[in-house]
């Protein structure tokens, strides 16, 4: 920046013509003129009125002597740590509903059958590179000519065939990345008895009225009711309430076809060979809908496998247990 030229004070109007706020500055004029002769100042203090406001501390400035800042990404991840799963979830296809009977109590449990179709790990997201830890999972398959070249390269790098569905599951720490890229994760990833959250897109109902969409009461069928049986009724007060419709007023409109989470569904059965996961209760969406299955946030984290290596010994252990149980069972019979 070139040095500013000194003001030509000769052109200043007489002091009585200047505004009263500038009068206090006038005695400094000779000094300024003196300076302008010897060296050009970077700025002329006369021209500014210094702010009396003390500068606010920068909330992004890190000071090691103070508490950790809450506006950093680390702090944000720490805040969400309790609700970030330890391990990845999987993608399932909703196949339909059936029921299971408890032979002891005779209790009938309605349940949904989800099927896992070639769930493979496509990529890992790391804190260093991406800012968080996550596992990218792909499911199903897709013809190569239907996949864009960038995605083909992405799949090729993971060493998997092109996938129809790709989803990302955030995990808390690096331990969640124990499933390697390219590995196939099956139904035994979930343990019977554990709780899961499922997410999917609900069935679209189209344009639905207030009674169906929000459970409004509607109006009576008779008693002089005229041409109004399923309407939403009043949308708000008149002049005293502002003569306007308040934002968020529930009205008729498009219903469904939105992402829905159902929390804390119990895993009833698991069938690795057929890729079947049976969960208690209903799951959003129509049949053949892709569903995200993840460890439930509302329950203690399950003692499930963190990697494929954890699953393999379990089968041996189960076989051993069964072998151990067999003589006992025969003894009782």
């Amino acid at each position: 920046m070139p040095p500013r030229p000194a003001l030509n004070w000769g052109l200043l109007p007489p002091s009585f013509l200047l505004p009263s706020s500038t009068r206090s500055l006038l005695p400094s004029i000779p000094i300024a003129t003196h300076l302008s002769q010897s060296q050009t100042p970077s700025y002329t203090p006369i021209r500014t009125i210094k702010s009396t406001n003390t500068p606010r501390p920068d909330r992004f400035a890190h000071n090691p002597h103070k508490d950790a800042l809450t506006s950093t990404s680390t702090a944000a991840l720490d805040r969400r740590a309790h609700s970030t799963p330890l391990r990845t979830g999987l993608l399932g296809i909703k196949r339909g509903m059936t029921a299971l009977f408890d032979t002891e109590t005779g209790k009938r449990t309605p349940c949904t059958i989800l099927q896992l179709d070639r769930n493979e790990v496509i990529a890992h997201k790391t804190r260093d590179k991406h800012g968080y830890f996550a596992v990218q999972i792909g499911a199903g398959s897709k013809q190569a000519y239907n996949v864009s070249r960038p995605m083909l390269g992405h799949f090729a790098e993971a060493g998997v065939a092109p996938k129809r569905w790709v989803a990302e599951f955030q995990v808390k720490t690096e331990q969640g990345l124990a499933v390697k890229v390219g590995e196939e994760v099956g139904a035994r990833w979930f343990t019977p008895g554990q709780f899961v959250d499922v997410r999917g897109v609900s069935r679209g109902m189209g344009f639905a009225g207030g009674m169906k969409r929000h459970g409004f009461g509607g109006q009576p069928a008779s008693h002089g009711q005229s041409l109004m049986h399923r309407g939403m009724g009043s949308a708000g007060g008149s002049q005293g309430s502002g003569s306007r419709v308040l934002p968020g007023k529930r009205m008729a409109g498009r219903m469904g076809n939105e992402r829905v989470t159902v929390k804390n569904l119990k895993v009833m059965q698991v069938d690795e060979a057929n890729g079947i996961v049976v969960v208690h209760g209903a799951v959003p969406g129509p049949k053949n809908q892709i569903i995200r299955i993840q460890d439930a946030l509302g329950k203690p984290w399950p003692q499930g496998p963190m990697s494929l290596a954890d699953i393999a010994p379990a089968t041996i252990a189960a076989a051993g247990e069964a072998a151990a149980d067999a003589p006992a069972a025969t003894a009782t019979v």
């Binding site: 179709d117 070639r118 199903g140 190569a144 090729a156 065939a161 092109p162």
Partner: peptide, 9 residues
């Protein structure tokens, strides 16, 4: 590189 798809479930 196109990896062959595994048999569908």
């Amino acid at each position: 590189v196109l990896h062959p798809a595994k048999p569908s479930i």
